[in-house]
Simulated assay, not measured.
Amino acid sequence: MWPRIGGLRTLDLGTPGKMRARLNTLVRNGVKTATAGLLDEYADEGEELERVGERLALVDDHDTLVGVVEVTGVEVVRFADVPWDFARSEGEGDRSIEEWRAGHAAYWARVGTPVTDDSRIVCVRFRLVSAGDGGVLGT
């Protein structure tokens, strides 16, 4: 089960360190409005998929609240079928869907969960509703 803060599931992007700090900054600046995860990780953790309208606590390396996002869309697709408009909304600077796929495949391989074209990817879109600590939820 994923950690909770004030009843909200946490959203810990990337790996701890520079990557997570960069991704959190992109979210807080409104550049990153989506994230991709592996469907198998949800089953492994006993978690349900996010649902539209759900709020998630964006956390740093120490599980400290740095913002709150609201889920605006959830879709499960094959890795080979992730659309470019979704990949672009991740805001990580990829210049093409091929670049996005190569970068994400390399990331998941590095963390020990290699993907294939048929791997199921959870594509989560969100909007920032609160930036900063304190857990103030925007509308």
Score class of each variant (00 low, 15 high):
Asp60Ala: 04
Asp60Asn: 13
Asp63Pro: 00
Pro83Ile: 11
Arg22Ala: 15
Leu23Pro: 00
Val71His: 00
Leu26Asn: 09
Thr25Gly: 15
Gly73Met: 04
Gly6Tyr: 02
Asp61Thr: 02
Ala21Glu: 15
Pro3His: 09
Ala109Cys: 07
Val69Gln: 04
Leu11Ile: 01
Leu137His: 02
Glu90His: 06
Arg28Tyr: 03
Thr15His: 05
Val122Lys: 15
Ala36His: 05
Glu45Tyr: 02
Gly30Cys: 08
Trp2Glu: 07
Arg125Val: 13
His62Ala: 15
Ser89Thr: 14
Gly91Gln: 00
Met1Ile: 10
Gly135Ser: 08
Arg51Gly: 03
Ala43Ile: 05
Ser130Gly: 14
Glu75Trp: 07
Glu48Tyr: 05
Ser96Arg: 04
Val129Ile: 15
Asn24Phe: 01
Val111His: 03
Ala131Phe: 02
Arg110Phe: 13
Trp2Ser: 01
Val59Trp: 10
Leu38Trp: 00
Arg120Cys: 01
Ala106Ser: 14
Arg101His: 14
Leu23Tyr: 08
Glu75Asn: 07
Glu70Tyr: 05
Met19His: 04
Phe86Cys: 03
Asp63His: 12
Ser96Gly: 09
His104Glu: 12
Leu26Ile: 04
Lys32His: 02
Leu39Trp: 12
Thr35Glu: 08
Gly6Pro: 01
Pro16His: 12
Trp108Val: 07
Ser96Asn: 09
Val124Gly: 02
Arg101Val: 06
Glu70Lys: 05
Glu45Gly: 00
Leu49Pro: 01
Arg55Ser: 10
Gly17Ile: 10
Arg101Lys: 10
Val82Pro: 01
Val74Arg: 10
Arg20Asn: 14
Asp12Phe: 12
Val124Asn: 09
Met19Tyr: 08
Ala80Gln: 06
Gly17Arg: 12
Leu49Gln: 08
Phe79Ile: 08
Gly7Ile: 15
Leu39Ala: 12
Ala106Leu: 12
Arg101Ala: 10
Asp133Arg: 12
Leu11Ala: 13
Asn24Pro: 00
Val71Ile: 15
Arg51Val: 10
His104Pro: 00
